[in-house]
């Protein structure tokens, strides 16, 4: 464990608390893509199946349980509790275009052709693009509540912080994980446009609005 990874994980935790806080205080999931949230459940379940056969640490164990449980809870909030506040007509990204290629790529580019290993690889590829329905929705509406942008910024910071973590691990532990690194770079790259608007507008106290 190094500082970058810890800060990345804490940022990930923070993003989830911000999202739940947003939904509960505004009593609405307006502006949140159900498809992206459903993809995250898929990602966590596929990746953390190793809870059943691999012990890493208490930290790792509780974080995995938390990410699975909280993502399922968010789906529940969106699907049942605050269902009327979700507008499927603006959440129209075709998730097949993300899941399909992630399945195919994980069957081709993996470390070992084993079921759980392919599931892990699939989860890495799917996570890289899981934010796209959310960003697509943002693009469509052209604006977002400030709290929603804080959620996205914390989520983007999480993967961004994993990059210095990999560099650090390369020098200190002499290990590289090319699949995680390539997918992580893609994932972070997807946030660049968002980060630009976030830093130049939201952090200056303005509303998140995209140019028409």
């Amino acid at each position: 464990m190094n500082l970058f990874r810890l800060l990345g994980d804490l940022s990930h935790l923070a993003s989830i608390f911000i999202l739940i806080h947003k939904i509960q205080t505004t009593r609405s999931c307006r502006g949140i893509s159900f498809q992206t949230q459903a993809l995250y459940v898929t990602v966590f379940v596929a990746r953390y199946i190793d809870l059943f056969f691999r012990w890493i640490s208490l930290y790792n164990f509780f974080m995995k349980i938390f990410f699975i449980a909280s993502s399922v809870y968010i789906l529940y909030l969106m699907k049942y509790r605050y269902r009327p506040t979700h507008d499927p007509s603006i959440d129209t990204f075709k998730v097949e275009y993300l899941v399909g290629p992630a399945v195919v790529l994980s069957l081709i580019f993996n470390y070992k052709f084993e079921f759980t290993e392919i599931l892990w690889t699939f989860s890495i590829y799917l996570e890289a693009v899981a934010i796209l329905p959310q960003l697509f929705m943002l693009q469509r509406t052209g604006e977002a509540e400030t709290i929603t942008t804080h959620y996205l910024a914390a989520l983007g910071a999480y993967r961004a912080l994993y990059i210095p973590n990999w560099i650090y691990r390369y020098f200190t532990e002499d290990v590289v994980d090319p699949i995680a690194i390539v997918a992580g770079l893609v994932q972070t790259g997807l946030y660049l446009d968002f980060f630009y608007v976030y830093f130049t507008k939201v952090l200056q106290g303005q509303k998140f609005e995209l140019p028409a």
């Binding site: 691999r54 890493i56 290990v175």
Partner: peptide, 10 residues
């Protein structure tokens, strides 16, 4: 440099 074998990251 070796490829990481266990997946110890989240």
């Amino acid at each position: 440099t070796e490829r990481r074998k266990g997946h110890d990251e989240l």
